[in-house]
Design a protein around this nucleic acid. Structure first.
Lengths: 152, 152
DNA sequence: ACCTAGATCTTGATCCATTCAAGAAAATGG
DNA sequence: CCATTTTCTTGAATGGATCAAGATCTAGGT
């Protein structure tokens, strides 16, 4: 009695992992979940979030998992100048980011030109370009109105 | 006899520094020169280049100078994902970069749309955008033809 | 269900780019 | 030439990320 829950509790995250041929482990489910729930979080924040549901996960495991998930395309890693690595679960749509120079907040920006665009450099120097990464730098609404309230 | 050379040897780099209200020191001239001569070089390469003309410069001095030059707008700092900081002397023209995923080589790309463009995000979320940084990722001609010759 | 092979995680150390700190040296303006 | 302020030297520390070895767990086959 009760072992039927093994089947009924298959989460979407487990499905995602399996469909990428990744073994399902508790650290992996927890990290994948954390990235979904905390877009643009850095590794340290992800470790913190993961440990709320799975207390004793090593930081090394989180690093390993993030690498595996990134390689599998389940998460995307971004690393703006001067920042540590950050991760997001929105993948495959070629979107970009706006970053506040003052507080570091990040927001998503749909690609301005279409779906898989931005791939046209004025002179590609013979490079075979497969991705155009755009980072818009500026000041967020909050920092614009409260110029001295740094959360950075 | 001979001290007239103090005047005649004012280099362009000295002028650049003075016009930015920066004191002229040998480390600064050497670093500025190194960045001009080695576009996209990282700090370590710049330290090496600087020490060819000025043997005993501390790495800390180079870090400090690079920071000062960047703040003054005399050089530009770029830091692609997974790379250390790199510097270039081409500033003020809103150009972008293509980077080879295989060997890490970097080439300049003029802005595709015009002069100070690219500043139009599809939805800026209220951010006041002042710069659009574009990095094109791909494979350089050399790595395309010699797929296994990593210099990275 | 159980076992095995191979992947993944834990533990603990290490790397290295960058920054911090304090005092010595140098540059500018008077 | 001096005084003030900046910049450089020296040496240590920081922190994100990686390396390494062995224990643990997952998945697939029996």
């Amino acid at each position: 009695m009760g072992h039927a829950s093994n089947v009924s509790t298959l989460t979407d995250y487990e499905q995602l992992l399996r469909s990428s041929d990744l073994r399902v482990t508790r650290p992996r489910v927890a990290v994948l979940s954390a990235v979904h729930e905390h877009p643009h979080a850095d590794t340290d924040s992800i470790i913190g979030a993961v440990r709320q549901s799975l207390a004793e996960v090593s930081h090394q495991a989180v690093y390993d998992v993030l690498r595996a998930l990134t390689a599998a395309g389940l998460v995307r890693r971004i690393q703006p100048s001067g920042s540590v690595a950050r991760y997001e679960s929105r993948v495959g749509d070629n979107h970009h980011h706006v970053i506040c120079r003052s507080c570091g907040s990040i927001a998503d920006v749909d690609c301005a030109v279409g779906d898989a665009p931005c791939l046209h450099a004025s002179n590609d120097h013979g490079y075979a370009i497969d991705e155009a990464e755009v980072i818009y730098w500026g000041t967020c609404p909050n920092c614009s109105s409260n110029p001295h309230a740094h959360t950075h």
